[in-house]
Design a protein around this nucleic acid. Structure first.
Length: 940
RNA sequence: ACCGAAGUGGCGGAACUGGUAGACGCGCUGGACUCAAAAUCCAGUGAACCUAAAAUUCGUGAGGGUUCGAGUCCCUCCUUCGGUACCA
């Protein structure tokens, strides 16, 4: 009997919908389980085969947990604000809200094809006003709070104001940015504007100057992604950094807590380490260096105060505010040229090209606080303004980059640590004995750090301090398609927050999306909206992509609530996400911001867990194949269009050609798996490129085969290699697609997409289905008692699949199913007591075919509501063991013996085996290693 | 450059805490069925040596180390992928 997947799939899809099989309820009598996928950005290319990898895994978990008696929340939604929709609007004139919702509909139908158990009544879209009003609401809360270091939580800014009124700025315990010192009476005398400026230094959402990628030619601010080597990717125009007032979130206030509570999470060590390094806690010191012939000091930050006697120069970030003040006339041209150069460099470039360090001397000198010698002050791009104080003391003897810099510019290097006792250590390792360091001489590094810190504080030269690499999060975007800020500005530019009643602040409709003349958000053109409130103007920046995604998992709990972002009752029921599945590309960004928002909401008493995601698993990426032909660069307009295949091009200088991507759907594979285009493929390709009148296509071989240059890479619309799951589902069925994606390999690993193995999974499902049909094509199950052998096969499979589901090792579960079905098939098993539990076990993986079998077998209701089978160990016991017998670690024989045989007998009998005798003949046996039920090794 | 991950047959991968390397599937080869093909079923399939069988040797990115025993642990290196704060 053939399994007609198309008919069966639509039948059960309707059945599930009509009977609300996947309706999620908060059932107080059941334990809860919340399994979450990172929701997709609905791009115009549609869902591709990489998306469902994690979704299928979470679907299997959700269905399994459901069958095990949990109340399961497994929702889906859309991260719907973002740059691509806005870019698309600029190019085509189609409004982002139209294209976004259209894309979402496509995504939803594609997801439904795969048979996920989503309860769509819980869907969220970050771009809808009923959702983003709560994003804006959280922002207002951030704006209205500061962080209190004493109670280690966020507190209302009004509390801080009362503290200021009573005691001024001293001992408030408040975490702040720029430090202000004032008394209570000062505070009372400050103007409103002054007060607001001071409070900005404390608010968790605040305004500060930040740098943006400004492209003069395009008249717009570009995303980092749109900038390549200091030029805009579109058009190739120069891009430079421009300071702008921007909103930011004071995530640094939570750095310590974000670091500490990583310990409580069931995340992979590598992910925790990535977050740890991102937070980058270091203990060090701020030290003031006097500037020669000036009143000002340079404050540097160092994690190696012990090496201070090796500091032979100072390096400032080119953006450092002191640069202007200290640069000498002689050096001013050099310095300003250099600053111009660094403005065009991205932060990554500034850090990565360590071998070709650059920098210039400012002409000024600082005074070493201990030796009182004068040391030159340089500026260099490898010092970043955002990290530490934007200034370092350079110790070329013990810092690799300082060393390269000193060597290039011939600056002094004073060795300060004798590392001769540690021959394999690098110069940056904190080992060795201090030399050339006055009162530190003879001390070990660790002692020297303690001593110098004491000395620095005693002499009031600076202060020991803990520093974090993590920076406050920029929260402004000069864009249209994002959440508007609930902020207005008074005539003297004081930002004023709107109230909860004013939410949501709706995105105004504008017909043409275009940046403002100074690079402002396109919202600047919604003049009426900007001036809607008398005497005030609205903030025109919008929130970044991560705003909506920092809390969406909470909204799924109660997506329709109009009074709160989620009710107390629902929040109490679902608490946190039990299992979160998503890509490593979000390892720091999204996961860090979500944790921060969650902790903030926890402080305010809205959520009741410290952390949002208890367990987290990173799924790998499904890669695509990128195929290319080569297009000869035209010398004149009149040249013909010439394409060359991968073999032809080898005889030429590759510089004469530009690679062009060939859409995957035209590509054929030869017997060696090499990609090529046949005649028809070439014709399709040329049509796709827009047929030129004079076009040549070169190839090397005589055969009608144009070889392609092929590589594995990202699946993306840009490379025309996106594989749509719909086609695979239409051909093989959703069950087969689901199981094949799982069968491809471990969830965490990246792997290329290739359908060539799918026939194996299709064959497995066919064989499974055929177990239920007799020779006359009738559905056939018997009620006979199963044999011990059959029970062993079934329970081996149940045990394996259970273990593997726990550990998310779905590829090996699929193998276990294959092994089980192969065995049952060869036993010609037709027994209900075997085949029905197998069907239930398979139901989370292949919901359609198992639902069909469940009903054919006479059951009513959904198999998804039946009870998950349990493994019975009684059927699994073996009474003999197959020992590998090794001689000197090399396996020589396989020995089957009873499990009951005592170790002493094993030891003597093994030496009597003919196969072993020949290896040990005449040689002294040193020892025999026996690991019970594992292996035997004879050591000669 | 920095942080993190991965590298095993022709291919995707398996191997639990250091204990039989290559489960399962694809592909390939041979056979059965068929007028033939497709589908299905059966058998074989890491490499070398050998007419064949048996046996042996070599094999988990490269090089070194620890161990009775290393795909697994340690050190150095190479390659690929993800992230590096405005792609999502």
């Amino acid at each position: 009997m053939e399994f007609k997947h198309q008919e069966v799939e639509s039948k059960w899809k309707n059945f599930w919908t009509e009977n609300e099989i996947y309706k999620v309820k908060e059932d107080p009598d059941k334990p809860k389980y919340y399994v979450l996928d990172m929701f997709p950005y609905p791009s115009g290319a549609g869902l591709h085969v990489g998306h469902p990898l994690g979704y299928i895994a979470s679907d299997i978990i959700a269905r399994t947990k459901n069958m095990k008696g949990f109340s399961v929340l497994h929702p889906m939604g859309f991260d719907a604000f973002g740059l691509p929709a806005e870019q698309y609007a600029i190019q085509t004139g189609q409004h982002p809200s139209i294209s976004t919702h259209a894309n979402i509909e496509t995504y939803k139908s594609q997801l439904d094809n795969i048979g996920f158990n989503y309860d769509w009544s819980r869907e969220v879209r970050t771009c809808t006003p009923d959702y983003y009003r709560w994003t804006q609401w959280i922002f207002l809360k951030l704006f209205e709070h500061y962080y209190c270091l004493q109670s280690e939580k966020a507190k209302p800014i009004t509390d801080l104001v009362s503290l200021f009124e009573k005691q001024g700025s001293q001992n408030t315990g408040a975490f702040c940015g720029e430090k202000y010192i004032f008394s209570a009476s000062d505070w009372i005398k400050f103007s409103d504007k002054e007060k607001q400026e001071i409070l900005m230094s404390y608010r968790l959402a605040f305004r500060k100057k930040g740098f943006v990628n400004w492209c003069e030619a395009l008249g717009t601010v570009l995303a980092n992604d749109e900038v390549k080597d200091g030029f805009s990717e579109r058009g190739g125009h120069p891009v430079e950094k421009k300071p702008m007032m921007q909103w930011a979130l004071r995530i640094t206030a939570y750095a310590e807590r974000l670091l500490d509570s990583l310990n409580d999470l069931e995340w992979s060590d590598s992910l925790k380490i990535m977050q740890q390094n991102w937070i980058g806690k270091s203990k060090g010191a701020h030290v003031e260096f006097k500037i020669e012939n000036a009143d000002e000091n340079i404050e540097i930050y160092t994690t190696r105060p012990d090496t201070i006697f090796g500091a032979t120069f100072i390096v400032l970030a080119p953006e450092h505010p002191l640069v202007d003040k200290i640069v000498t006339i002689d050096q001013s041209n050099l310095v300003s040229d250099y600053i111009l150069y660094t403005k065009k460099r991205t932060e990554r470039e500034r850090q990565s090209e360590a071998k070709q360090v650059t920098g210039v001397f400012t002409g000024s000198y600082a005074v070493h606080p201990f030796t009182h010698k004068k040391i030159p002050i340089w500026i260099a791009e490898y010092v970043l303004i955002d990290y530490g104080t934007g200034a370092i003391m350079a110790v070329p003897s013990n810092d690799q980059r300082d060393k390269v810099f000193a060597e290039k510019f011939e600056l002094a290097i004073i060795p300060v640590i004798d590392q001769s006792q540690f021959p394999h250590s690098s110069i940056e390792e904190k080992v060795g004995t201090m030399i050339n360091s006055e009162f530190l001489n003879g001390l070990e590094v660790a002692q020297a750090i303690e001593k110098i810190l004491g000395e620095i504080e005693k002499q009031k030269l600076g202060k020991a301090e803990v520093q974090f690499k993590m920076r406050d999060a920029n929260f402004s975007r000069q864009r249209y398609w994002g959440e508007p800020f609930p902020i207005i500005y008074s005539s003297d530019d004081i930002p004023v927050s709107l109230t909860e009643k004013d939410l949501p602040v709706l995105t105004p409709w504008i017909d043409i999306i275009q940046a403002g003349s100074q690079g402002q958000s396109p919202l600047i053109h919604a003049t009426e909206w900007v001036h809607e409130i008398a005497d005030f103007t609205r903030e025109t920046d919008t929130m970044p992509g991560y705003a909506g995604s920092s809390w969406y998992f909470l909204r799924y709990m109660d997506p329709k609530n109009e009074h709160v972002f989620a009710s107390e009752e629902k929040l109490n029921y679902w608490k946190e996400v039990d299992l979160y599945i998503g890509g490593t590309e979000h390892a720091v960004g999204h996961l860090m911001y979500s944790r921060f928002w969650h902790k903030f909401l926890f402080d305010l008493g809205y959520v009741h867990t410290q952390e949002p995601f208890k367990k987290l698993v990173n799924q790998g990426m499904i890669q695509g194949e990128i195929n290319r032909l080569f297009l000869r660069k035209k010398q004149t307009e009149f040249d013909s269009t010439e394409y060359a295949d991968a073999n032809y091009v080898k005889d030429f200088n590759i510089e004469e050609f530009v690679p062009v991507e060939v859409p995957l759907k035209f590509v054929k594979k030869d017997v060696n798996g090499k990609s090529f285009l046949d005649k028809a493929g070439i014709d399709e390709f040329l049509a796709f490129r827009g047929n030129d009148l004079r076009v040549l296509v070169h190839k090397k071989e005589a055969e009608e085969k144009w070889m392609l240059d092929s590589e594995i890479g990202k699946m993306s619309k840009r490379y025309h290699n996106v594989v749509n799951p719909d086609e695979v589902v239409a051909e093989y069925g959703a069950d087969c697609f689901r199981m094949y994606e799982m069968f491809l390999g471990p969830l965490e690993q990246s792997k290329p997409w290739d359908t060539k193995g799918i026939s194996g999974v299709a064959g497995f499902l066919r064989r499974y289905f055929s177990l239920f049909w007799n020779a006359n094509d009738e559905f056939y199950l018997t009620d006979e008692e199963p044999s011990r052998e059959e029970l062993k096969v079934l329970h081996t499979c149940i045990k394996k699949v259970n273990q593997d589901t726990e550990s998310l090792s779905f590829n090996t579960s699929v193998s276990a199913f294959m092994i089980c079905v192969n065995s049952l098939k060869s036993m010609a098993c037709t027994k209900r007591q075997i085949l029905i539990p197998l069907t239930q076990l398979l139901a989370p993986f292949a919901p359609f075919i198992t639902e069909e079998v469940w009903h054919l077998a006479g059951n009513s209701g959904s198999i998804q509501h039946s009870k998950y089978p349990e493994a019975n160990e009684d059927f699994l016991v073996e009474d003999s063991v197959n020992y590998p017998v090794s001689v000197n670690g090399k396996k020589r024989y396989e020995w089957k013996v009873s499990k009951a045989k005592p170790k002493s007998e094993l030891e003597s009998e093994v030496l009597e085996l003919d196969e072993i005798k020949k290896w040990i003949d005449g040689v002294q046996i040193k020892k025999i290693i026996i690991v019970p039920e594992r292996m035997i090794n004879i050591v000669l």
